[in-house]
Each structure stands twice: as structure tokens, then as C-alpha cells.
């Protein structure tokens, strides 16, 4: 059976991580299992797992390495981990979470220690930058969630660089544009995706729209690079949002089923 792996440390964030993982497990019809990498004792982790009725496995070694190793198991479909649990650091990704999220080629649910806890994820916010490659990222999650009842709110934020050229008659243009945006960038095999658009800085807007739209979780495609200058949206969303953040690695663009181009390099190209 597929399962969500919970990375459980001894921090106070553990309870929120377990709750987030359980909500994700319900959505993906998966089980949960916690793993604790033994460092200074495991009492906090053990009691957190017991309280939630989650089986706990304790292993030894370098924390990030062991978590990635455990996450790579075939039956693990996602890993849940806490953002650093100290108030002083707000909610940036801790070094362990950062190492795991950038290494494991699976969705990682980053749960803020003092954030919103939803027993069930009923509504997910999916920010989209409007490129085909990034739009494919959430598909793996929706494939896992096939059959689940969940509202999907896609969000596209225009910033200075991506500002559209034309608005024409907005009473028609906006609807036409939104319809096509959903067709083009929400190819997840689910119907009823609602699109929200905003103007601003994406990192600032995501948390705000998640709040406005009553979303339980934010699913964000990313390239798994946290080097300086990269993943600014991920960093800022982690800082600003109290929602669990599901980081989904962007996979290489894949064709969908059905009629396909004979040559991917020229697929769908208008000549000349």
C-alpha cells in the first residue's frame, strides 16, 4: 500500500506534521508511517506518534541521508516534514528539511509548526507561473488523488515581467484568457478547476489568496534548487503562509495520452 512518510524529529512541530501527513494520506488514499532518526533521544517523537496512532520507525545515522533513503522506498508517495520549529526563525526551511526536499524526487509536504491544521484537505491552491513544464508538476499529485473530492484553485500572478500585452474588452477577454489558461496549464485530468488571477509579487500573493479562498494546502511545483537566487517563491511562501506547503518537483515535460507528435521537437509547431 502506498504511504506517506512522516519525518518526525523532537521539535514541537511534530504534531502539526503528523496532522498534515494524515490529511494528505486521506486525500491520496495512502497510509502513514513515521520515521525518526535517532540523535539525542526519541521520546518526543515517540509520544507524538503514539498520540496520533502512527507507527514509528527509528533509525540511526545522518538525519537527512536517512530520511531521503527512507523516502525513496517504492511504497512512499510523499514525505511530510516540519519547517523549523523555533519562533525566531519564523518558517524558513530548516537545514534537514531543505536537504530532504532538494534531494528526494517526490512531493514533500512542509508543515509550519504553528500553522493551520485541517483534518482533511478539501481545497488546494496551485500557483502556476504559466509554463507547460511547471504546470505538469502537480499532475503526479492529482493522479495519486484520483477519485478524491477536492476543490482545486489554480492561481496565476502577473508580475512586472509577465504582465500581459492586451486586455481588449475585459468583459470577454478575461473569460477567454482564463478558459485557455486552464486548458493549457491545468492538464491534470480533473474538471472544475477554478482560476484566480492577481497582479503583484507571487511570493506575497500566494499566502493571501490561500487565505481568501479558504484553501487547506498549497501545492507548488519547484525545481528543487534552493541556492541563492532560486526558489524565491518557495521561500517567501514558507515565510508568509501558515498553510502546509506541498513541494512537487517539476518533472521533464511529458506528453499526454492520445494523438502525439511524431517528433517532440517540432510538436505542434506552426510552420514557419
Amino acid at each position: 500500500m502506498k504511504k506517506i512518510l512522516i519525518a518526525l524529529d523532537n521539535s514541537p512541530a511534530g504534531r502539526a506534521v503528523v496532522a498534515g501527513a494524515q490529511a494528505l494520506a486521506l486525500l491520496l488514499d495512502a497510509g502513514v508511517e513515521a520515521v525518526h532518526v535517532h540523535e539525542d533521544g526519541d521520546r518526543t517523537a515517540r509520544s507524538t506518534a503514539e498520540a496520533a496512532g502512527v507507527p514509528l520507525r527509528t533509525v540511526s545515522g545522518t538525519v537527512a541521508d536517512r530520511l531521503v533513503e527512507a523516502g525513496e522506498a517504492g511504497d512512499v508517495v510523499a514525505l511530510a516534514i516540519g519547517a523549523r520549529g523555533t519562533a525566531a526563525a519564523r518558517r524558513p526551511l530548516g537545514s534537514t528539511a531543505a536537504a530532504v526536499a532538494t534531494t528526494l524526487a517526490k512531493p514533500v509536504l512542509v508543515v509550519p509548526p504553528d500553522g493551520l491544521e485541517a483534518p482533511v484537505f478539501r481545497s488546494v491552491l496551485v500557483p502556476l507561473e504559466g509554463t507547460v513544464s511547471s504546470s505538469l508538476a502537480p499532475r503526479s499529485v492529482f493522479e495519486l488523488a484520483a477519485g478524491a473530492e477536492i476543490d482545486v484553485v489554480a492561481l496565476h500572478v502577473y508580475d512586472q515581467a509577465s504582465m500581459p500585452s492586451f486586455t481588449d474588452q475585459p468583459q470577454h477577454e478575461q473569460r477567454a484568457w482564463e478558459h485557455e489558461f486552464v486548458q493549457r496549464y491545468c492538464p491534470w485530468g480533473i474538471t472544475g478547476v477554478r482560476l484566480e488571477t492577481r497582479v503583484g509579487r507571487t511570493g506575497e500573493v500566494i499566502a493571501q489568496v490561500a487565505e481568501e479562498c479558504g484553501c487547506d494546502v498549497i501545492a507548488l511545483g519547484w525545481s528543487q534548487e534552493l541556492a541563492a537566487g532560486r526558489a524565491a517563491v518557495v521561500r517567501e511562501t514558507l515565510e508568509r503562509s501558515s498553510h502546509p506547503l506541498l513541494l512537487v518537483p517539476v518533472r521533464r515535460a511529458e506528453p499526454t495520452s492520445g494523438v502525439e507528435a511524431t517528433d517532440a521537437a517540432t510538436a505542434g509547431r506552426v510552420q514557419p
Binding site: Y185, G258, V270
Partner: peptide, 22 residues
């Protein structure tokens, strides 16, 4: 004659509806 032909090779799911308009 390519001067008078608009050709779309293959089917790109992202751009398909644009091509259908064209």
C-alpha cells in the same frame, strides 16, 4: 506551395486550441 500553406505538425496539447483557431 509553402507561401500559401499554414502547416501544424503533430498535436501539442498546450497549443492545440490556438492551432484550431488558426
Amino acid at each position: 506551395s509553402s507561401d500559401w500553406t499554414l502547416a501544424v505538425e503533430g498535436l501539442d496539447p498546450a497549443l492545440e486550441r490556438v492551432h484550431e483557431s488558426l
